[in-house]
Design a protein around this nucleic acid. Structure first.
Length: 900
RNA sequence: GGGCGCGUAGCUCAGCGGGAGAGCACCUGCUUCACACGCAGGGGGUCACAGGUUCGAUCCCUGUCGCGCCCACCA
């Protein structure tokens, strides 16, 4: 066997112990090279790039789901023989990482970031990354993720950084990246700009204060309403609606701005809603997005009154300078009160923008930033999805994607942080900017600009800012494959096959990859986007550390095994709904793993093994032909569902096959055969049982890689032929002709007979230990033959003394109906006939009700005329069945009544 | 203010035009020679509500109520 995994040859233990087995296989797979794409150039490529976890991250349940689903696909396609690459890596996560290290510095009582200086700080972050960053990748290994770990990339590694610079320079040359001074979302805690997506509105209790601004001519006042009185110090106008008659006479006049010595105009602008507040709005272009637009329209100056840390600056009156914005708010209100200018207030709830990382109130701030022309790039991203080059699964997420892409704003990509890709822009002493891939090229450009000779001294300073983390993430599908080099991997695997991610990241990441991939590579980054659910707690809330409602996947793996967790997540990953995860669900699937384990143990104990190629078309015995058909159906279903990303359906089909078909029935059926005398049948059965189990192991492997690999090996030690590890096996491709309808009908009949017998016994409280006879009355020859053929089996599973065909039911027999026959259990003296009469009456009533319902339906001429013929026919059959069953049971009831 | 999704068994969820399903929980039996993380049997649902389309609606349409999420500049 490849992989060189050895363990002692011994009986399979009675329960599965994941903890001792999982680490061994993780190592064996990786060592064997199974995670690397196969070299075979003819193999169809299949590639997924991992959503790179943050370098600061630890595995949470969302990662567990995301990576389980990817691994299911990846292992599935690998088994199908494709050349599979699952490209792993990490995201440097600008703000998140800088936060972690800054906090660490504080805890250690070290110099803070600013005191350390940029170089020392960045060095410190790298050191942290080397020591404790990226532990999540090892946690993914524990989950069983079969990434090609030899290709691990990091968004800040040399190659990816070069890709970032190249794209930035290219977009800049094309005019798709530019520098602009406009209002941005400013995070006063981190002192950086952030993008619209990083701003989260939070419903907050606030006030709407009314403030009087005195008219300059002394002829009264105009009252404005505001939630942010402190920004009034930067007001440059008061605006009213052009049609608002209350204020028509005031437009064009001026007011004295309280607390300052400035005079500002009253202007008319349709932006103002006369119904809202007082109908008069203070205009502060430097600190409000709407006001900025109004200011532009009216050519008003923008007066910024805040520092980058959110304190009042030198543009504010002296007495407010240096105060924090929220302190200033109180002071301004107090000063207005003293000036007699307050005109009341009301408490309101309103959405206030907060930074998603810092949690502080975001301040619109007028600054110079770099922007990506997203509206232009979005066009192709929209077209590619419209034309079906890239497809979302489920499709309805395309709406969300379109909605955002069609209303996209320029993307602010500069961040005033230190940890990240420094913007490849250099400035000369005159402030000219040179955007180049490196300083040498920038200097060349600068010399050219200034008409200097090559190698002439010229001093440039690089832009201080770094790029938004998502800029490099946007390049991930091609940068990780080696771009800008034309590597074999890039050629082979781009566009990638599928992207698997949660819906909360469509805008942040999926949309950006679409834009970047289409522009830079001229091709979509991935063909399919599978959007999976968010994992929520049992109340449906998003899990978060601060809420304390997290489920730790590593703890769950310790407790139940990685396979149980994986199977649970896959089984619950139905499209279109978030997952509310509860632990008892995992326990249930842990039990499933144990069930599989003990089934294999049974096979081993019964010397079931496949020594060589087994042809599933060869079995003669009906139970064997039947299970072969069930395997074929299951394999087809699992294949079909996985191709459509219906993980839950695939998992469900496997669960039902293993538990309800193979274990509940097939293994029970073959016990008598294995104990019998017919050596040929015994051999065939052993080989069929082994083959069916092997197929189940292969089909289950994408979901439960550890236990299936272990069993594959264990069974191999007991005779099954193994050419390689299970991970490298071939996915079953079974002819639909293997489904033998005749065998299935026969087995289904037997199952029905046994089930009905058991149910009847249980209902009448026949002790399980009581061996009773069974008589089959009025059956045709074929059915009687069936009974004879499976007598051993039926007697065993229905706990019978004997079973036989007969012409009439004896008096005092308990009966039920099976197809055209009546089954009689002579229980005279064993059961209470009042109970039996009651049971029969209940059954008769059930059949009568059914018959009445169908009869009414068939009595409806419109139904008979308009419904499809097969539906009508089916109903006729059901009516017949119900009537004949009721008749037989009535006969049985009357026999009971005449019994002595 | 727009948009999306969801209300199906006690819980968590599948199903989505023709006979209401699963897992867990619950009840009753069972030391049946793989498995008590098990076996066998069972109870439990006007498929949120009201209309409509249809021969037929849990499923399609409209509306109502409840819940969740996303987007949005209303001071």
């Amino acid at each position: 066997m490849t992989g060189g995994v050895f363990h002692s040859t011994s009986m399979i233990e009675s329960t599965y112990d994941p903890a001792t087995i999982e680490p061994r296989w993780s190592e064996a797979w990786e060592k064997s090279g199974a995670f690397r794409p196969k070299a075979d150039a003819g193999a169809e490529p299949f590639c997924i790039v991992i959503p790179p976890p943050n370098v600061t991250g630890t595995l949470h349940i969302g990662h567990a789901l995301n990576n389980t689903l990817q691994d299911v696909l990846v292992r599935f396609e690998r088994l199908r023989g494709k050349a599979v690459l699952w490209q792993p890596g990490l995201d440097h996560a600008g703000i998140a990482t800088q936060m972690v290290v800054e906090r660490q510095l504080a805890n250690e009582g070290n110099l803070d970031r600013r005191a350390m200086g940029r170089d020392a700080f960045v060095e410190r972050v790298w050191r942290w990354k080397g020591e404790s960053g990226g532990q999540i990748l090892n946690q993914l290994r524990r989950l069983g993720a079969s990434c090609d770990w030899s290709r691990e990339r990091f968004t800040l590694d040399e190659g990816l950084s070069a890709a970032v610079r190249k794209v930035f320079v290219q977009l800049h040359r094309e005019g798709l990246i530019y520098k602009d001074k406009r209002l941005v979302n400013w995070d006063p805690h981190f002192e950086t700009a952030i993008s619209d997506l990083e701003v989260v509105p939070q419903e907050t209790n606030g006030h709407l204060w009314r403030i009087a601004y005195p008219l300059e001519d002394g002829a009264g006042e105009i009252v404005v309403a505001t939630t942010r009185p402190e920004t009034m110090l930067g007001d440059v106008a008061v605006a009213v609606h052009p049609d608002d008659e209350r204020y028509a006479a005031l437009v064009g006049k001026s007011v004295r701005l309280p607390l300052t010595d400035r005079t500002i105009p009253i202007i008319a602008d349709a932006y103002v809603d006369p119904e809202h507040g007082t109908g008069a709005v203070k205009i502060t272009p430097a600190h409000d997005f709407n006001d900025f637009q109004v200011g532009k329209r009216h050519r008003l100056e923008a007066i910024g009154v805040f520092t980058l840390r959110g304190a009042l600056n030198e543009n504010a009156p002296k007495r407010f300078q240096g105060l924090d914005r929220f302190v200033a708010r109180e002071k301004v209100l107090q000063a207005l009160e003293e000036a007699g200018l307050r005109r009341g207030e009301e408490a309101i709830r309103h959405a206030v923008p907060h930074g998603d990382r810092s949690g502080v109130v975001i301040e619109p701030m007028l600054t110079d930033q770099w922007y990506v022309d997203a509206p232009t790039l979005a066009k192709r991203g929209i077209a590619a999805v419209e034309q079906g080059e890239t497809t979302f699964h489920p499709r309805n997420w395309e709406k969300v994607y379109f909605e955002w892409m069609r209303n996209i704003e320029p993307w602010c990509v500069s961040r005033q942080l230190w940890w990240g890709h420094r913007i490849p822009a250099w400035y000369d002493a005159d402030g000219n900017v040179y955007v180049e891939e490196n300083e040498t090229a920038a200097k060349d450009a600068a010399r050219k600009k200034h008409g200097l000779k090559a190698k002439a001294e010229i001093a440039l300073t690089q832009d201080e800012d770094v790029l938004d983390t998502w800029f490099s993430s946007g390049l991930w599908p091609f940068s990780t494959l080696g771009w800008p080099d034309q590597t074999p991997e890039l050629k082979r695997f781009y566009p990638t096959s599928a992207l698997v991610t949660a819906h909360d990241i469509i805008f942040f990441w999926v949309a950006r990859m679409m834009m970047m991939g289409l522009h830079v590579m001229q091709q979509i980054p991935f063909r399919d986007v599978y959007i999976h659910a968010l994992v929520r707690d049992e109340k449906g809330a998003k899990m978060s550390k601060s809420k304390g409602n997290v489920m730790d996947p590593l703890g769950l793996i310790d407790k139940y095994g990685a396979d149980a967790l994986r199977f649970t997540l896959a089984a619950m990953a139905a499209q279109g709904r978030d997952i509310k995860l509860s632990e008892n669900r995992i326990e249930g699937y842990r039990n499933f793993a144990t069930k599989l384990w003990t089934a294999a143990r049974f096979a081993q104990m019964n010397e079931c093994a496949v020594w060589d190629k087994f042809d599933p078309a060869t079995p003669k015995v009906a139970v064997n032909r039947w299970i072969v058909g069930e395997v074929a159906k299951t394999a087809a279903a699992v294949t079909r569902e996985l191709e459509q990303y219906r993980f839950n359906e695939a998992a469900g089909a496997l669960y039902r096959f293993v538990w309800n078909v193979y274990c509940d029935w097939y293994l029970e059926f073959i016990k008598p055969l294995l104990a019998g005398e017919d050596e040929a049948a015994k051999l065939e059965t052993r080989r069929t049982a082994a083959w069916a189990l092997d197929q189940a192991l292969i089909l289950l492997h994408p979901f439960m890689p550890f236990i299936t690999e272990e069993l594959w090996a264990r069974l191999g030690e007991f005779g099954a032929k193994r050419d390689r590890m299970l991970i490298m096996e071939s996915w079953p491709s079974l002819d639909a002709a293997l489904v033998d309808d005749a065998a299935a009908a026969e087995i289904d009949w037997m199952i029905a007979l046994i089930s009905e017998t058991r149910a009847t016994r249980a209902e009448l409280n026949v002790p399980p230990s009581a061996r009773i006879p069974l008589l089959l009355i009025g059956a045709d020859d074929a059915t009687c033959a069936r009974l004879e053929r499976y007598q051993d089996l039926i007697d065993r599973l229905a706990r019978l003394d004997y079973s036989t065909s007969a012409d009439v039911a004896p008096h005092g027999a308990v009966t039920f109906v099976l197809d055209d026959a009546t089954v009689a259990l002579p229980l005279d003296g064993i059961v209470d006939f009042k109970a039996e009469a009651a049971r029969l009456e209940k059954e008769i009533a059930r059949h009568d009700a059914e018959a009445a319902k169908i009869d009414a339906k068939l009595g409806n001429l419109d139904f008979v005329r308009k419904a499809p013929e097969e539906v009508v026919e089916e109903n006729r059959e059901r009516l017949n069945d119900a009537r004949s069953a009721a008749a037989k049971l009535r006969a049985a009831l009357s026999r009971l009544n005449v019994a002595p």
